[in-house]
Amino acid sequence: MSNYNFAYLDEQTKRMIRRAILKGLAIPGYQVPFASREMPMPYGWGTGGVQVTAATLTPEDTLKVIDQGADDTTNAVSIRKFFEKTAGVATSEETAQASVIQTRHRIPEEDLREDQILVYQVPIPEPLRFLEPSEVETRKMHSLEEYGLMHVKLYEDIAKHGAIATSYAYPVKVEGRYVMDPSPIPKFDNPKMEMAGIQLFGAGREQRIYAVPPYCKVVSLDFDDYPFEASKADHACDMCGATDSYLDEVIMDDAGGRLFVCSDTDYCAGRRRAGHVGAQGVALAEDAA
């Protein structure tokens, strides 16, 4: 890979992405069009996040890549390897050690600091897309701040199911202006979006970049009588005993026995190293990797 530029992309492409990131930060929640490049990995597999990360990384950075909260899922491994090869940056599985974190579908449990950047991989950046398939129309709706359609959809959920039937990619309003898709994170993660770190969102196939600056107002859409609720499985982690983390459900045996375990693998391992033990777990030694 030594024939390729630092972080793979050529400098002109990085400048174009960087300009889009700056406008994204200046207009929180607004989707900035950018000339997404064809990357050596498939569209839909994180090409937007990869391009944003490539334009953001410096050689001194420590990069963490997670998919579903885990560092060891195959696509996270693949993307981490890509940057090890093309940017030569250090990588870490520890949230606290990372200066740049690329993620798919989760926000780490541990609060991010001011010096950390979270890069989201986004499949469909347009929160109104499933209500209105035409880009021409949705762009118009954003320009007019015409979000009635979204409220109607949420209200129809309530009429039909007695609750809002959106459990992930739950729409948010940013700084009182743009309705934004937070990427398919579980709604449990939505409240974490008001954070100290910088949040950047890249959608490669759909050619959009957007951003949420630190301490920016991010409000999950709801109604007075049906307030937003950041829900999770009503269990503690069976490995580390955490009651405040988002859980994966694992089928354990042919009888359908279930086990609940933190989706954030670093958070879970850190708690176990610190001596916390869940109903089915064992403590990890202090020095265990």
């Binding site: 998919d67 579903q68 909260g69 899922t73 696509n75 579908h105 989760r106 459990s167 992930y168 990619a169 398919p184 994170i185 579980p186 709604k187 449990f188 829900s231 499985a233 988002y246 859980l247 994966d248 459900e249 989706s263």
Partner: peptide, 8 residues
Amino acid sequence: PHYVDFQS
């Protein structure tokens, strides 16, 4: 993997 959104 879509474990997380499927779980929700």
